[in-house]
Design a protein around this nucleic acid. Sequence first.
DNA 1: TTCATTTTTGTAAGTGCTTTCAAATTGCAT
DNA 2: ATGCAATTTGAAAGCACTTACAAAAATGAA
Lengths: 338, 338
Amino acid sequence: MPEGENVFMSSIKDVAKLSGVSVTTVSRVMNNRGYIGKETRSRVEKAMQELDYQPNQIARSLQRSRSGLIGVIVPDLAHPFFSELINEIEAYAIDRHYKIIVCNSLHDAEKEANYINMLRQNRADGIIVCSHTLSTEKYEHEEMPVISFDRVISPSIPYVASDNYQGGEIATRHLIESGCKKILHISGPLEYDLLANRRKDAFELTAMKAGVAYMSIEGAYIEATFEDNYKFIKEQISTILKNYDGIFCSNDLLAYALYVYASRHHIHVPDELKIIGYDNHSFTRMLQTPRLTTIQQPLDRLGEALAFSLINNIERQEDEKHNQNIVLDVQLIKGDTT
Amino acid sequence: MPEGENVFMSSIKDVAKLSGVSVTTVSRVMNNRGYIGKETRSRVEKAMQELDYQPNQIARSLQRSRSGLIGVIVPDLAHPFFSELINEIEAYAIDRHYKIIVCNSLHDAEKEANYINMLRQNRADGIIVCSHTLSTEKYEHEEMPVISFDRVISPSIPYVASDNYQGGEIATRHLIESGCKKILHISGPLEYDLLANRRKDAFELTAMKAGVAYMSIEGAYIEATFEDNYKFIKEQISTILKNYDGIFCSNDLLAYALYVYASRHHIHVPDELKIIGYDNHSFTRMLQTPRLTTIQQPLDRLGEALAFSLINNIERQEDEKHNQNIVLDVQLIKGDTT
DNA sequence: TTCATTTTTGTAAGTGCTTTCAAATTGCAT
DNA sequence: ATGCAATTTGAAAGCACTTACAAAAATGAA
């Protein structure tokens, strides 16, 4: 006997024995498949009750070669954006009887690779990739269904994203319409080809079309703490700050650090400087001073779309898999910083 | 053939065939168990490489009756406290080769019960319970190892908590030492017998001993949004606010709402009113106006202790399981609100 | 050389379930 | 009563692995 916990767990055999039928029959009533005598069914059900029988999903997984597991890889579980996203993914997935395994890559490519390996070995049914540390090749040749958040991995791997171009355009236009003449955009790291970088494209194009002075600068990593963000502002932005009357930050945490910097240096927001952020995640929604003007990513629908698309692909036959991308609208949230 | 993804995955049989040995031998080199000829080993390893062989953990789980899965049940994944806690738990667990399944009870007892059932069926190796919606009985008779955060479930189920009494005492004493004469404590919901309620005991005892006027009032749920918290302050606290010069809130989100209320009503913090919160999670650390005075729960060590204790119990024999509780020190973080 | 160890490898049973196949029983129209 | 289909049930193989047991080969001390 193995040392195991499951000494107490009864198996299909126990149920079969107690109800005086074969395991096949028990399996049939469990799965409601095939013909079953009325009286037999109730005998089996009674036995299940009596034994508090819990079908062993591991055995089922092995048999069906479907584990019901979905791996979600994020760069930082504690980041309000990703914790909220996982929250939504989980809610949807559990509705469809999938379990979520969280994988925290911490921006470490090796860790991310290890997670993928782990998910392979556990025969996860699919992966939702929200971390973009690893080079795309690792995913391109993945046999299990993959869906990506905010990044084009390969033509065969669908992605879900909010409309980053639209977001950049709305944000930029909002600054301009609020009277800004010299605007700055602080983007995310451009190192990877994230769709979030379309915000920068939109910023530049919109500013150019409108004929206002503009500039872009590459910003800090998204997982940064307040101190990191503040340091970035101090070191990279403070010297050029006086040249601008409007700044579009690629994420709310950075926008907040910028606001704090401005406040501390007696630059009045929004009179002297207008600030607009991006995301409107739980931190931003909680924050009251300032109420940040920002672009809201629809985290609920993003999470749902990621889970929905992936699960549908999991359940489709090989030849009918979809690789349609999903792009969702964003929304301006007007706060006090513009 | 099943529809499955794993059509491409090679099995131990394939490796055996390619290297011209039996599956037993392959298993031996995989697990490094028993005697193995030097030359045979390298032949097998080469075959594994060639086939990109990934041992099927599902089959291993079935055989060993150990799944390597740990369920973590929280009330709200998007709450900064729990997302940070899971973050730490996950980091520790993955180090010891356990996978974390996240379960979001949303304060719904039925959902929580469903999760437990799911974890049972998937033969999870253990459960970390951070959600306290369900009555304790459901866990008391659980056959798998359980560890609880911040709640006594039963004598046989260990818990991990920070020292809530100590926290309450430090907070209260800090208010008194800062000159408060009439202090109020807003606790969490007292409905469940959470260890967090020891903060209230400490508050009352410390205030009494010091001879200052005090009162406690039962507060709102911890997952509340800013609006919920603010509403609670407005409806339950605003009328009595003028009677107090120091308030100890049982969580930072509530403390923040109180601060905002006070600011909006021109009650100067900390001159007229001192506020101390509890938790110092990522939201609080990010927040700059105000820098909340608060009690820091050591989220990193709490997460580690939860994972560590549970995993040790999982790996111990039935008769040597521990049920020692772990209580960790908290720390005063002095901000601008006292 | 002999014989007891030690080393190397394989056969087969078992983990808990699903599913194919076939046998046995029943129902019903002829 | 007869024949055929529909219904009810079970035996056994298979999913990918581990392990107890046994057999064969190599080693070494006497």
